[in-house]
Design a protein around this nucleic acid. Structure first.
Lengths: 411, 411
DNA sequence: ACACATTTATTTGTATAGCGAATAAAAAAC
DNA sequence: GTTTTTTATTCGCTATACAAATAAATGTGT
């Protein structure tokens, strides 16, 4: 915890005000005052400063004069043009880029269906750079208009250092992808675990609005876990994001208990030894098609497909039970592609969950399947950057807090 | 996050100063200033207030004048007599009570070897009340001298509400033990999961000094998990403490995969179907003796005992691997009785851990076995209370933060 | 012995924060 | 047009942190 001074005080309260404006849309000063429990005076002062900085703008009172008398409220909202940021999501066979404004509205996005896993980091950086430049240019902007950029990718990411410790995308370990792109693009680039972005997006725009605690489990080719705790993204020690794929669901002796080898899309396909269209050669969308096929065949009654999906669901349900035991979140969001929505997957997941959970926790968590949407990732990536621009004084989500001298141990 | 005002500012900085004094013993104002990065002016002001409140005291410069010239430093230390608090630890067959001073030094302690599990909460409250009153009186104090009391017990505890959701101690669910004792003793009583107290104690006095992240796994009759994250105790949503016993290590279909049924002392005994001295009738120390016997026989080469301990160690190692995957803590402290120190238990634990951990996390965590000491629990309980008296402005450890209006969702 | 250097602690003065009370602004109600 | 009501701002107050100047307390050197 940083030492407190007037500056921090202002930063905290300013963030509260910004957050209230962001969340509750056009909002008047009185309402902000009520929501934040700051005095009207303070709200007035802070909003004046924000208006001065052009971070927010006034909205002339529109329809909502409910024939109340008194001086009408002046509604405040974020100034969409205060900044533009870029969000990037890397998947093994798809690069998604989006440019958003200060409200996290997507101005322009491009999806590049390119198979990038096992390319060298330099090549991937090239592709990302190209994609970003193109998307920015398509949006009618130049790079100098961009205030920041965040890249989400699966795996274990150390956000503070901008280093990807390990990822299905990169063959190498410890790729300093953030600094690399920062240099290439001349814009501050952060990287983060993709599912963290998803969690932030859910918190800002999706199923997690108004919730201070929830889990996001992403089921794609690999598995991810994002934890929102006490209104903040939770990161492990030294800011590492956990990799749900490395979670073990049974002792490894008996033919591998890695969850990633049991419950991911990849593992389901491997389990079925999907014939024909070998996944290496089939380019970008082969994987997605293969999964869709599996789900279809399961719907049609194919026993093997049903069993494969059920096995995956059960394994994930087992893992989620343990996560609920640890975190007791009121909500668990299962986010993913077609597989994640199939009842052949979700049903066994729920059943396994119910079987494993201790009775005391049986009802604390609601499991919801989140409709897949490409947009949410990049919006989350944008939000991650915006959060910093909004002036968040909590370092929880930003780079790991520089541990104060007092925290260093014996003097 | 609370809104910031000058009061909070002062509270934060005062806590930093208190914490520096607590941790770095007799310490001068200049050193505090360096450690906390507060200005000398501020440190002077805060320490003056603390001295005024008699929370700290000056120490006449002792031996450590290293022939440096200049005005000698005035050393500051906690005033041991600033307050007394009581820590209580409940185990199924043992109640431990300790009275400590403001430095968390134990003034007096009593251990009551009473089998309390399955007694009614009222009876247990009676016993605790008696024990506390006796211990306080033995210390030459009266209840009015006591500033606070914290009770640690195994199970799932909701500290904020003072409610024990579930515990091997109580047959009932949702026992409001905190308020009950508060009324009986006329002193603020908090309750907490015992292993959280242990974690705090390790952080203040033990293996966790200077570490901002570590796990404590307690192996007793039941299993506990305490998480220190970013220098603060981690609690699940709504302040619930997790119960490691409910962690599953294999799908429950095949004869129960609850970790508590596989790796606790109780389960080892059950596994061996310890003959003779039936555990029900043998009063308080039967359990401990039985465990000691198992360890002894394992040391002597008894195959069944070795296997039982190994199975328990493996199960726990499996669970710890998953915890490391999630939290990546630099240290994991395994705390417990004789069983937890036996190499017949720890060896398999380490091996299972090594087998399950992903390579990228193979070396991040050091596993240490913590010598059992009754004292540490009650000292932790005392520390938990002292933390509040020191004025910790973070509600993470205290009662759950009253979620500000802004966090409540849509307006 | 006594001036001087040196380190530590306090005092003084300044800037900034938040907040309550009074005030101004703006619109409906009378 | 005046009053009422609600919203926003201004003014005056207090609390905080901090930098600079000052005081305190000790060792060093002549």
């Amino acid at each position: 915890m940083k030492t407190a001074d007037p500056e921090l005080m202002r930063a905290i309260n300013r963030f509260h005000v910004m957050d209230a404006i962001r969340r509750f849309g056009p909002i008047s000063r009185v309402e902000i005052s009520q929501l934040t429990e700051l005095s009207p005076t303070t709200v007035s002062a802070i909003t004046a400063a924000l208006l001065d900085d052009k971070l927010i703008m006034t909205m002339q009172v529109g329809a909502l004069r409910d024939s109340t008398r008194g001086r009408p409220r002046v509604m405040l909202r974020l100034n969409p043009d205060a900044a533009r940021v870029v969000g990037v999501k890397l998947a093994p066979d798809l690069i998604t880029v989006a440019v958003t404004n200060f409200c996290a509205d997507v101005l322009r996005s491009v999806a590049l269906p390119i198979r990038i896993d096992r390319q060298t980091p330099a090549v991937i950086a090239d592709l990302v750079e190209d994609g970003v430049r193109r998307c920015v240019s398509d949006a009618g902007l130049e790079m100098k208009d961009i205030s920041g950029l965040c890249i989400g990718l699966p795996g274990v990411v150390e956000r503070a250092a901008g280093v990807c410790r390990q990822s299905p995308i990169f063959g190498d370990r410890d790729v300093a992808f953030g600094p690399q792109l920062t240099e290439r693009l001349g814009v501050p680039v952060t990287i983060d675990c993709d599912v963290n972005l998803c969690a932030l997006a859910e918190h800002w725009f999706g199923q997690g609005r108004g919730l201070n605690d929830f889990l996001v489990v992403s089921v794609e080719r690999s598995l991810g876990l994002g934890i929102l705790h006490n209104g903040e993204l939770f990161r492990g020690a030294s800011g590492l994001s956990p990799d749900l794929g490395d979670f073990m669901v049974r002792p490894s002796g008996n033919e591998g208990g890695r969850l990633g080898d049991l419950a991911s899309e990849t593992s389901v396909l491997a389990d079925l030894e999907t014939p024909a269209r070998s996944r290496e050669s089939d380019g970008a969308h082969g994987h997605g098609r293969a999964i869709a096929q599996v789900v279809q065949r399961a719907d049609a009654g194919d026993k093997r497909c049903i069993a494969a999906l059920a096995a995956a669901g059960e394994a994930l349900g087992f893992a989620i039970a343990n996560l609920i035991t640890l975190f007791a979140p009121p909500k668990v969001i299962v986010s993913g592609g077609e597989m994640a929505h199939s009842e052949h997957f979700l049903g066994p997941l729920r059943r396994a969950l119910a079987a494993q959970l201790p009775p005391s926790l049986a009802d604390v968590s609601e499991i919801v399947a989140r409709e897949w949407s490409d947009g949410i990732w990049v919006r989350g990536a944008a939000a991650m950057t915006l959060r910093d621009l909004y002036g968040a004084p909590w370092n929880t989500t930003g780079p790991a807090r520089p541990s104060t001298a007092i925290a260093e141990g014996e003097p």
